[in-house]
C-alpha cells in the first residue's frame, strides 16, 4: 500500500525539469491544441517527431513512457478498430462480404494513434514527469490568479488540491489497517450482495472519517506553526527566465505551423 505513485514525478536534471512550471502548463495546453487541430499528414509527421524530441529533452527513459502508455493502449485499439471498419470513403482497399476497408479509414486510424500518443506525451512530459504535484498546483494557482479579483478563492483550492494529494496514501494506509482490524473481528467485505458489502464498509468508514478529522486539526496547527497564512499572499514569485519565454515562443510558432499546414491542405485531410 505504501507504493502508491502520486503523480509520476521523475527526478532528473533536464531542460524540461528546469522550465518554469507555469510555462509548462501553458506549453502543455498549446501542445494539446496543436494535436487536436492537426488534420494533415505532414502535420502528423511533425507532431510525431516533436513528441519524440520532447521525450528526449525531458531525459525520461522510453521504458517509463511506455509504461504510462499501456493503460490507453486499449482505447487506442478500440478507436483504430472503429475507424478501420466503419469509415466509408472513395479508396476501397479491401472488401469481403459486408466488410469494406477504405484507405480513408486507415489514414484516420493512423492519425488517431498519433493524436492520442502526442496528447499523452505532451501532458505527461510537461506536467506529470517533470513537474512535482506541488509545483503544478502553485503554477495553476498563479495562472488562475486573475480570478482572485472576482473573489474566487484560487489559493485555497490550490492548497486543498496539494493536501488532498498528500493525504491520499496516509488515508489509504489507514483504511487498510482498519479493514484488517475489522476482518480480525470477523467482518466480511468480499461476499454477499452489493448492499450487504456496502453495509459492511460502515465500520470502516466511520473510524476513517474520525481519523481524517483528527489529521485535519493537527495538520492545521502544524501549518500555522510554519507561518502558513491562508490569504494567498505567497510572495515567492518565480521570475520567468529567457529560456522559459523562448520555449513558449517556439511552442506558439509550432501551433501556428500546424494550423498553417491545415490551411495549405496538403495531401490528405481527414
Amino acid at each position: 500500500m505504501k507504493n502508491i505513485a502520486l503523480g509520476q514525478y521523475y527526478p532528473a536534471k533536464s531542460p524540461l525539469h528546469r522550465l518554469d512550471p507555469r510555462i509548462k502548463v501553458l506549453l502543455a495546453l498549446i501542445y494539446i491544441c496543436a494535436a487536436a487541430f492537426c488534420k494533415n499528414i505532414i502535420g502528423f509527421g511533425v507532431l510525431l517527431v516533436s513528441a519524440l524530441l520532447i521525450v528526449a529533452l525531458g531525459r525520461i527513459p522510453f521504458k517509463t513512457i511506455f509504461r504510462s502508455l499501456t493503460p490507453v493502449l486499449f482505447v487506442m485499439l478500440f478507436a483504430v478498430f472503429f475507424q478501420v471498419f466503419f469509415t466509408k470513403g472513395d479508396m476501397l482497399l479491401f472488401a469481403w462480404w459486408k466488410l469494406q476497408i477504405y484507405g480513408e479509414g486507415l489514414y484516420l486510424a493512423l492519425f488517431t494513434i498519433v493524436r492520442i500518443f502526442t496528447l499523452i506525451i505532451g501532458t505527461s512530459m510537461f506536467l506529470t514527469y517533470t513537474t512535482t504535484p506541488i509545483e503544478l498546483t502553485y503554477a495553476i494557482e498563479d495562472l488562475l490568479s486573475p480570478l482572485k479579483k472576482l473573489k474566487v478563492p484560487v489559493h485555497d483550492f490550490a492548497m486543498m488540491m496539494t493536501l488532498a494529494l498528500r493525504f491520499i496514501p496516509t488515508l489509504v494506509e489507514e483504511a487498510d489497517k482498519i479493514m484488517t482490524a475489522q476482518k480480525a473481528r470477523g467482518a466480511d467485505f468480499s461476499t454477499g450482495s452489493l448492499v450487504q458489502r456496502a453495509k459492511a464498509l460502515k465500520p470502516v468508514l466511520i473510524p476513517l472519517i474520525v481519523s481524517a478529522m483528527r489529521h485535519a486539526v493537527e495538520l492545521a496547527v502544524a501549518m500555522e506553526c510554519r507561518c502558513y497564512h491562508g490569504d494567498g499572499t505567497r510572495m515567492v514569485v518565480r521570475k520567468c527566465r529567457f529560456s522559459d519565454i523562448a520555449a513558449l515562443i517556439v511552442m506558439i510558432i509550432f501551433l501556428a505551423g500546424i494550423i498553417y499546414l491545415n490551411i495549405l491542405g496538403l495531401v490528405y485531410t481527414a
Binding site: 514525478y9 512535482t132 506541488i134 496539494t162 494529494l165 496547527v221 502544524a222 501549518m223 515567492v236
Partner: peptide, 26 residues
C-alpha cells in the same frame, strides 16, 4: 509534533522543507 504524517504538507520531501520559508516570503 508527535505524528509525522500530520506535519508534512507536500508530496516531495524538498517541497515540504521549503514550505515554511515560502510562507515567510524568503
Amino acid at each position: 509534533f508527535q505524528n509525522p504524517d500530520n506535519q508534512l504538507v507536500a508530496t516531495i520531501v524538498e517541497d515540504d522543507v521549503a514550505f515554511g520559508p515560502e510562507n515567510l516570503s524568503v
